[in-house]
Amino acid sequence: MEIFDCISAVARPLHDFGDAFMSDEATAAVGMSAGFAPGRGFYCRGRFGVLGEAPVSVVQAVQGFLGPHLVTTGWLAGRPVMPAEEAAACYAQALRTWGRDHVPGDVDVEHFNHLAQQLIDEADTDALPLFAGWRAQPCPGNDPVGAAMQRIHVLREHRGACHLTAVRLCGLSGQEAMVINLGVEQATRYGWQDPHPVAATRIPRLQRAEQLTDEMQAQLYASLTDRQRTEFARLVNALTAP
């Protein structure tokens, strides 16, 4: 399989499977059992806790696609519950638990883990701090299914960080990208207050940003052989199957 064919095959399944974890009530329940109140505290503190005790403005700058009010409220609400690094570890544990409940049992997760780690190790972390933080998060070797889910999340963070960079290079804001992708009404669910429609003339910029994102990820997938890319795409689709 060619590099860009593989990227195209795995990008959406990796994104959507990670989204399913983030939006699952079971994930929210893990946060509440750890002491977080209902809302975005566990999500913000857990996902962005790999950045350490950063000011909320720094967290907002790193993630880019969520509205400032959502990030501010969630990050500050979670701060009294536990330190950032502990929250990130708790979130990683929730990832692995969710993976054990949702990854199909007949998938060769060991082979997936080998190929996924090869991609993760190959990545250049320059200008990708959220990905760098998640790559540094410990991943236990005695839980292959949970580790597979954590690696899905790490790869998702790599594409997300690349995409934010690409969006800005193409002259769009994170809010504009979310409105183009989701529409005005859905963008409000991600924390953007009173978002406005984006002019049709700006939509091609997001299409170019998607191309740039693929190009930024090409270095990773070049580290696999054609056969390995075919195997990786097959495994991703098997792992994330409904």
Rank of each mutant, 00 (worst) to 15 (best):
V56I: 11
I120V: 14
L169E: 14
C44K: 13
G133W: 07
P129D: 02
V236Y: 02
A222G: 09
V154I: 15
F112R: 02
F4T: 10
H102Q: 07
E122L: 09
P195Q: 00
V62I: 14
H114D: 05
F42Y: 13
A20K: 10
W75T: 05
S23A: 11
M22Y: 08
Q228G: 01
L224W: 02
P38V: 06
S223P: 02
N181P: 00
T97L: 11
R159G: 09
A132W: 09
F36N: 05
L206A: 03
C162S: 14
L224M: 01
A37I: 04
V179R: 00
Q193I: 14
D143A: 00
H69W: 12
A218N: 07
H158D: 08
C139E: 04
W192T: 06
E122A: 15
Q137H: 12
A26R: 15
L172P: 11
G171M: 06
H111K: 05
F65R: 10
G64W: 12
Q175S: 07
P197I: 00
R45V: 06
E110A: 09
P144W: 00
A34W: 11
E210A: 10
V59S: 04
A187K: 02
M32Q: 15
V198R: 01
L182P: 04
Q217W: 04
V167P: 04
M1G: 08
Q117S: 09
A88K: 05
G78L: 05
R156H: 13
D121T: 09
R40I: 07
R189F: 11
E176I: 03
L119D: 05
E53Y: 10
G46Y: 06
H111A: 06
A29F: 01
E25K: 11
L70P: 03
A9D: 11
G41W: 10
F65E: 09
G133T: 10
I120R: 07
G141N: 03
T165H: 13
A11F: 10
G31D: 09
D143G: 00
L155G: 07
F42G: 05
